[in-house]
């Protein structure tokens, strides 16, 4: 599914990623943990195609295709989805209109028929309900005036509608209370199937209680310093990053 080799990237000339090697096979959920500033968000942005990051070395292939050569919208059409750590506000743009425009753009690119307003609303309402989102969130402007938790749930709603093959969740759990955390985890779990993979970036073990990863990787200083099974997350929680990364070094 996703294969990253020797990936290095910098922003404004400052190196952030210093050689990432990572393989996420189909059907697996991998967690990425690591201290602040280790490059977790940069990795997610580079994979989604944010242009202010410069890839200085390495490759990333997604289902055999050169991911780094694709425009962000092509990556979305191919099935890559990034749930933003800080979702962006779009004043004046209705959430339902945004979601439908995005969904139809992706469906068009995938050769699927576009949904009309009625079909879309039915689908969106059902998904919103599953995520325990008040229906008026579809009517409000994209992320404008949303609480932190509402923004994160709105990301998961988009993910549920766009049905990606690779979901990258950048600290989607931060700022969520325990109930919301469970809803978000359930939203991802609902997508789990053999042809779906997820890269879950988090600081906290508690999300991984609900969203059990196949592998856990620790990112420090722009490199993956150690990897393991779900138990690694517990160890990190108990002993802290410093001890684990020191051991790995």
């Amino acid at each position: 599914m996703l294969e990253i080799k020797g990936l290095a990237a910098s922003i404004a000339g400052k190196p952030i990623l210093r050689g990432i090697d990572l393989v996420v096979p189909s059907g697996e959920v991998h967690a990425i943990m690591g201290p602040n500033g280790s490059g977790k968000s940069t990795l997610s942005y580079v994979l989604a195609g944010r242009e202010d990051y410069e890839v200085t070395a390495g490759t990333a292939t997604f289902e055999g295709a050169d991911l780094l050569a694709m425009a962000p919208e092509e990556r979305a059409a191919a099935g890559v989805f990034l749930a933003f750590q800080a979702p962006i506000e779009l004043p004046g743009v209705g959430n339902a209109n945004f979601l439908r425009t995005a969904l139809n753009a992706v469906r068009r690119a995938r050769g699927e028929s576009e949904l009309d307003a009625v079909q879309f609303l039915k689908l969106a309402r059902a998904e919103a309900k599953r995520l325990a989102m008040p229906e008026d969130m579809l009517k409000r402007n994209v992320n404008v005036g949303f609480s932190g938790g509402e923004k994160k749930r709105n990301e998961v709603l988009q993910m549920a509608l766009l049905r990606p093959r690779l979901a990258i969740l950048d600290e989607t759990d931060s700022g969520l209370d325990i109930d919301a955390l469970k809803i978000v985890a359930d939203g991802v779990n609902a997508l789990r199937r053999p042809e779906f993979s997820a890269l879950v970036i988090t600081h906290h073990q508690r999300l991984l209680d609900h969203l059990v990863p196949d592998r856990v990787h620790v990112l420090a200083g722009g490199r993956i310093v150690c990897s393991g099974g779900p138990e690694l997350a517990h160890e990190l929680e108990a002993r802290g990053y410093a001890a684990i990364t020191a051991e790995a070094a």
Binding site: R50, P72, L82, P87, T101, A102, L103, Q158
Partner: peptide
């Protein structure tokens, strides 16, 4: 830029 990137990451040109 971040508004444009957000939209594009959702599939919009």
């Amino acid at each position: 830029e971040d508004q444009l990137f957000y939209c594009r990451s959702r599939g919009l040109t």
